[in-house]
Amino acid sequence: MVAVLGANGSGKSTLVRALLGLLPLSSGRLALFGEPVQRFSHWPRIGYVPQRGGASTGVPATVREVVATGRLARTGLRPMRAADRTAITRAMDAVGLAHLAKTSVATLSGGQQQRVLIARALTCEPDLLVLDEPTAGVDAANQQALATSLGALVGHGATVLLVTHELGPMLPLITRAVTLADGRVLHDGPPPDSDHLHLHDHDHAHPVHDEVPSARGSAWGLR
């Protein structure tokens, strides 16, 4: 599990967006799973959870409909099979949203919408999960639940790339930390010591109180 750390505007999101081929590189080369990005075609191996929580658009969509779009990376044009539907259900279970499957995404809280996006990324059963600020606006209990879930995912052999400005409960999971400042790498190696991080661990308010995913839901349910 790799963490990309840094203050607001330090280039964390820009870095991961470039890593995913969403932004052009100003110089250098980018390879995904050993393949140049231009020729890369194994997109189902990557799950991406974008930063903005706004999972709603001009037309309402249910939680299940949004989560199901994550499966398209695997199905392509063929219709959904039973295995695909199971994967979608399991991903919603993993983030504790199964009971909200038929709810319109627009009516959910910010933290719940964030979890919809996480479930969407999980449906394609990725080997690499990229999360851009998944804990922003999420209360401490749900941060802990997310940390537990990510730990389980890593335990199943996946790699997690986490962008955040504060590690919180993720800290014990981090094996490598890259700290950015003004678009440059300040530190790359083992995670910074926890005393330093604890200082501003409770600096910010936790405005959203979501219900906590159940313990059963905490396992990502991935193969």
């Binding site: 997109w43 974008p50 969509a61 409909e65 994550g70 398209l72 969407r120």
Partner: peptide, 21 residues
């Protein structure tokens, strides 16, 4: 044929690109 793909692209264009659509 492409309705589901179209939904994904109109819903979140960046995500659809990472999904390889």
């Amino acid at each position: 044929v492409v309705g589901r793909q179209m939904f994904a692209v109109c819903h979140d264009e960046e995500y659809a690109r990472v999904a390889g659509l």
